Simulated assay, not measured.
Amino acid sequence: MELYFLGTNAGVPSLQRNVTAIALRILEERRSMWLFDCGEGTQHQILKSPLKLSKLEKVFITHLHGDHLFGLPGLLSSRAYQGGTTPLELYGPKGIKAFIEMSLELSQSRINYDLKVIEHDGGIIFEDDQFVVESALLDHRIDSYGYRITEKDRPGKLDLEQLKQHGVKPGPIYGKLKRGEAVELGDGLVLHPHQVLGSPKKGRIVTILGDTRPAPNVVPLARGADVLVHEATFLHELVDTAYEYHHSTAVQAAEAAKQAGVGQLIMTHFSSRYKDLDELTPLLEEARGIFPASFVAEEHKLYPVVEKQG
């Protein structure tokens, strides 16, 4: 599981950074990719990345401001031309369905794959045998949501030596045991999963927030997460400006990370007043003064999601 930032700027793109889009690569876990927000130019960023639209399975939109969704119509229209013919699910606040339907209808765009648009107002919005995705309302000028992605615990490793002693060779029996099914061997012995499986591997948690001021739902969404992605639009000297525009400072992002007990904080959504990476260093220093495991997101860089320590 890895995070890949396609856009880290707030409001408008700059020569240095594009507007918001974050990919969660889950190739090992389910051979797919999920996208969180899709600002203008996102598909161009994908072309310059190792990401493949053919692997795109789900898109989650945090809110309906243009710097978070104006890239959607183009990406949806051209996805099939890049090998993306599998079904795609799109989640977002109320209004996302009308935006997509009108954009595609007026442009007479043809989509030759199954597109399902799901509007939500928080709560558990997706669950299968591998992942749960929860959402909650934040504090922005319009309804903006954060997403908590929880990977369910995975089966432990098979004890290959013990299986060998029972004469079990690699094949379908391995799969059944990994799925928690008991199997009967040729000699009539029933082998149970707990006899040959190690301890379960704890699932990881990623929290990705939309634009927000400090809000009651931030810490519950982030509590215990291995990685928290939080906007840090301004230095704390502009805290009043941040409040006025319903955004957060690097200090406020770090305070949320510390209170929630996360493993790492990755800050994004930077004001265009901070141009080069060097100009983001003061934000990083402010955050690390409160929460040492803080990072500023760099575009076209992979961030592995590792289980937090302690």
Rank of each mutant, 00 (worst) to 15 (best):
H236E: 05
L283G: 13
S272G: 07
A254C: 06
E279N: 11
H269D: 14
V239I: 01
Y243H: 03
E244Q: 02
Y274Q: 13
V296A: 02
A297F: 12
D278H: 04
A253S: 07
H247R: 06
A297S: 12
H247D: 01
P282T: 06
Y245D: 07
Y303Q: 06
K258W: 08
P292R: 00
A256K: 08
E286K: 03
H246G: 03
T241R: 08
S272M: 09
A256F: 10
F295W: 14
V262T: 03
I290E: 12
I266A: 13
A256E: 09
T241W: 13
E279W: 14
F291G: 01
R273V: 05
I266T: 06
V239E: 04
L284M: 11
S272T: 05
E298Q: 06
A257G: 07
Y243L: 01
E279V: 05
E299F: 05
F291V: 00
P292Q: 02
T241L: 08
L238G: 03
E285T: 11
A257Q: 00
Q252D: 10
A254V: 02
G289E: 05
D276G: 14
Y303T: 06
D278T: 12
F291T: 02
A287T: 01
S294L: 02
L302C: 09
E279S: 14
E237R: 02
V251L: 05
A253P: 01
R273L: 13
R288L: 10
V296P: 12
Y303K: 09
H269N: 15
L280W: 08
R288A: 11
M267G: 13
V251W: 05
R288P: 08
F291P: 00
P282Q: 08
L238Y: 09
T249E: 03
A297I: 04
H236Y: 04
G263V: 08
L277T: 14
V251F: 00
V296S: 06
K258I: 03
A254P: 07
S272L: 11
T249Y: 10
A257C: 11
E244N: 01
Y274E: 15
E298V: 07
A287G: 06
A254K: 08
L265S: 04
K275S: 07
S271L: 15
Q259L: 15
D278F: 13
R288G: 10
S294E: 01
H236R: 00
Q252C: 10
Q252M: 13
A260L: 03
H246V: 05
E237S: 10
M267Q: 14
A260C: 10
M267C: 08
L238K: 07
L284W: 12
Y245N: 13
V239F: 04
A293K: 14
K258D: 04
K258V: 00
T249S: 12
A256Y: 06
E255I: 11
A257D: 12
E298H: 01
V262P: 10
I266L: 14
G261K: 15
V262E: 05
A242W: 02
I290L: 09
E244P: 01
A250M: 07
S294Q: 00
D278W: 10
R273C: 11
L302Y: 03
P292G: 04
F270Q: 08
